[in-house]
Amino acid sequence: MPTFQDHFADHAASSFARQMALGDVIGERAWSLDVQKGLLRFGDDQEYRVQLLGSHAFEPGTWLWIWANAQSDIPPQHTQAALRIQQLGEAQGIGAFTEASVQLGDVTDHMIAITCSGLEGGRCFYRAPYDGGALFMLLEDAPAQVLAPVPLARVNTVLMEVVSQFEVDHRRLVTSFFQQQGLDATATESGGIRATRAGEGHIEINFDALGRMSKVTGTLTPAAAQEAPVQAAPKKPRWQFWK
């Protein structure tokens, strides 16, 4: 049976890429939420239907699933995604998906939201802060450019951001990411993974003895290279999509 960490590794990179793309779309717009209608608005020109997941209470450091929040009075049609995750957790014995209240630590609120966004068919999530906590939700109708495959030139940036911010199985992360992004991936003689996309070029990732990404190289077509250069791992996170 897969564990929570397995599911997280499977979906972290693609989810992170969608969050980066969503950030490009919403920019600095202020948000507002109509809970009864299940509508999340950004500024005066963007509106998305949402499924509510749960909330993080800062002081006790706990995650409360929306289906366990008896005082929320949220219409049930806006909690179906969280219930599906609960059912998956029951089938696979994953406590983080089935316990009404989860003590956060090794598993964080963002890890839960990232994993849910992948398990729910590749969606985006949004963290809506309030005094003393934050509410997490999935967007049901994000723009096409947010859900589009990641340009090959951005692949290294996505992977390096994820491994610099989370403890995760690097090889599983890379393998799942390449598969989800529709890249033609093959094993190299050195035990690495080479991924190619027609018209964009290729990227090759090598791993050390502990299974961590150790070297990233690649060749991009001139057109693809305009998107972003293949680059080394950052010394620290340069951008965190939940801030």
Rank of each mutant, 00 (worst) to 15 (best):
M1H: 12
F4I: 10
Q5S: 14
Q5P: 00
F8A: 03
A9I: 10
A12S: 09
F16W: 15
A17D: 07
R18F: 00
R18K: 07
M20I: 10
M20G: 12
G23N: 07
I26R: 00
G27E: 10
E28S: 15
R29P: 02
R29L: 09
W31E: 09
L33Y: 05
V35I: 14
V35F: 11
G38Y: 13
L39D: 07
L40P: 01
R41H: 12
G43A: 04
Q46C: 05
Q46T: 05
Y48P: 00
G54L: 02
S55W: 11
S55R: 15
H56Q: 11
P60M: 00
G61I: 04
W63Y: 03
L64I: 10
I66A: 11
I66V: 13
N69H: 12
Q71R: 13
S72E: 13
D73E: 13
P75A: 05
Q77G: 03
H78R: 11
T79M: 12
T79V: 09
A81Q: 12
A82M: 01
R84P: 03
Q86T: 05
L88G: 11
G89K: 04
A91V: 07
A91R: 14
G93M: 10
I94P: 00
G95A: 14
A96W: 06
T98K: 01
E99M: 02
E99D: 10
A100L: 04
A100D: 13
V102Y: 01
L104F: 02
G105V: 00
G105W: 00
D106I: 08
V107W: 00
M111K: 08
M111G: 04
M111D: 04
I112Q: 05
G122D: 01
Y126H: 12
Y126K: 02
P129R: 02
G132E: 05
M137Y: 03
L139V: 06
E140V: 10
D141Y: 05
A142I: 02
A144H: 15
A144F: 13
V146R: 01
L147M: 12
L147D: 02
A148D: 13
P149G: 09
L152Q: 06
V155W: 06
V155M: 10
T157A: 11
E161P: 02
E161S: 15
S164I: 08
S164H: 09
E167M: 03
R172I: 09
L173G: 09
T175H: 10
S176D: 14
S176R: 09
F177C: 07
Q180N: 08
Q180F: 04
Q180H: 12
L183V: 09
A185H: 08
T186V: 15
T186E: 14
T186G: 05
A187R: 09
E189D: 13
I193Q: 06
A195C: 02
T196H: 14
G199N: 10
G201S: 06
H202D: 08
I203C: 07
N206V: 14
N206F: 15
F207R: 05
F207Q: 06
F207Y: 09
A209Y: 01
L210G: 05
G211A: 07
R212Y: 13
R212Q: 12
S214G: 07
S214C: 12
K215N: 14
V216W: 05
V216F: 03
V216R: 01
T217L: 15
G218F: 08
G218Q: 08
T219F: 11
A224W: 03
A228G: 08
A232N: 14
A232I: 07
K236I: 06
K236Q: 14
P237N: 07
F241W: 15
K243N: 15
K243L: 12
K243I: 12
